[in-house]
């Protein structure tokens, strides 16, 4: 299905992936900012329940790629299909895709004027038209899942960074997405708060969520990822299992990057 050998290894490793479908298909995706090419012919298939970690130096197009997956950026060429829905200018498709894909940002991006619980109920109420009481119940469930139900009535500014990021995860989960995108979710956190966020993500991975995670947390990548993908200069350079990556990466650029980061 994919061109690289490492991928088939990854799929074989993990039995829970064997009978699942490709939930994300990206084919030859290009993205330009003016005359700067941010994505260069990127193709990848991601199966349902798969955990993919994207690595790469700063400016290599990691964010741009995952932002294309929920249309925060529009790709200029190629094809993106999410759960069978083609990503194009059709607004209905766009809304359908957005409600299947949750996103967690580096800077949390909570709504500062809303309480924690309102941050979470907003989407279910306004997009899914869920009654308020039901939405609040759902929100509390997700706050419990990320471990901070007691913070429900506070405002984002009253929480620590780690707590804010966990609220952001709960906010995304409350839309009951099939796919979760994480763009460097721990990069803005103080070291002592990184673990609490990674623990939540680990639990989420175990529950079978399809996840694409851009991160520099190698421990997380090694332990949780089914597949690692290395980006450089807008292109997908190498992919494979964590074992493949950390023990015998093939490409020179991958080796160089890993030697710098490990």
């Amino acid at each position: 299905m994919t061109t690289h050998d490492g991928v088939s290894d990854a799929s074989a490793d993990s039995d829970r992936l064997t009978d699942s479908q490709d939930i994300i298909v990206a084919e030859n995706v290009d993205k330009w900012f003016g005359d700067f090419q941010a994505l260069d012919n990127v193709s990848m298939n991601i199966k349902e329940h798969e955990i993919v970690v994207i690595l790469g130096p700063s400016g290599s197009g990691k964010s741009t790629f995952i932002r294309c997956l929920n249309r925060l950026e529009e790709h200029d060429a190629g094809r993106i299909v999410i759960d069978g829905i083609e990503m194009n200018d059709d607004v209905r498709n766009l809304n359908a895709i957005r409600s299947e894909v949750g996103m967690v940002f580096q800077q949390f991006n909570l709504f500062p004027h809303l309480s924690v619980i309102s941050n979470i109920t907003l989407g279910p109420q306004k997009v899914r038209h869920m009654p308020k009481a039901e939405a609040q119940q759902l929100a509390m469930q997700h706050l419990e899942r990320v471990g901070i139900p007691e913070q429900a009535d506070k405002y984002p500014a009253q929480l620590s960074g780690g707590q804010q990021q966990r609220v952001a995860i709960a906010r995304a989960l409350a839309m009951q997405p099939k796919i979760m995108l994480f763009d460097e979710p721990t990069s803005a956190l103080d070291p002592e708060m990184i673990k609490e966020v990674l623990d939540v993500m680990r639990e989420l991975a175990e529950s079978g969520m399809t996840m694409i995670v851009v991160t520099h947390e190698m421990g997380f990548a090694r332990e949780v990822a089914d597949r690692l993908i290395f980006f450089d200069e807008g292109a997908l350079v190498e992919q494979g299992t964590p074992q493949h990556f950390f023990e015998n990466p093939e490409e020179e650029r991958t080796k160089l990057f890993l030697s710098q980061i490990l």
Binding site: M103, K126, V127
Partner: peptide, 8 residues
């Protein structure tokens, strides 16, 4: 971006 990401 967060507003669009939650589907608003």
């Amino acid at each position: 971006e967060a507003a669009h990401a939650v589907g608003l």
